[in-house]
Amino acid sequence: MSIIDPSKGKGETLNPENWGKDYADYLFRYALVRLRDRQGAEDVVQETFLAALKGKDQFKGLSSERTWLVGILKHKMMDYFRKPSRELPVSGLITSEDPPEEFFDLNGKWQVKPSSWGDSPMDALEKKEFWKTFEACMSVLPGRLAQIFALREFEGLKNEEICNLFNVSTTNLNVMLFRSRMRLARCLETNWFGKKAKGE
């Protein structure tokens, strides 16, 4: 391995002519998981490449080409969320007045009791099929819940940042995160851990 001396500006170089071939799919998947909108994800990837072309003199070769592009993509994704035209109608918002009642009875007891996921659920992460199930469970989440879950968990945004982005209250956000986690857990339980237990 050769040593990169940042002061000499050597190291990684950019090859825009190969970007489409090398990174388009990768960046698209990265964006799709988070935006849950195919058209939006395509647009964001295109905008990323164009911005990268424009700013290619700012590339110092300190990170890989891909990491650099992902950095730009993240900015473009935030712009996507900020666009007022992206706002879902109010009816699409889940509010704190809309508690996850289907999971609990009126006394706040579990309606559908969580079952055991076995001794080593983490083993699932090594399996390709698990990620297909995970992806499918993400895709049945209501759009806004999926976006919020992705921003919190995949992007690691802080709650306040998400509240500002979507203009929702902390209480509201807590409810939405709770609902998304609850739904994902139930979905994985039914479609992965439950099936495995039955030996399917």
């Binding site: 799919d25 698209f28 998981v33 295109q46 164009l50 072309l53 990620w131 995970f134």
Partner: peptide, 26 residues
């Protein structure tokens, strides 16, 4: 690095074409 995100979807050929085109022109 070098690890694919655990998602199988990919860009449509059409979208890829569009992106390649945009990169070229620019």
């Amino acid at each position: 690095e070098g690890e694919e995100p655990p998602v199988s979807d990919s860009l449509s050929a059409e979208a890829k074409e569009k992106i390649e085109q945009a990169l070229k022109t620019h």
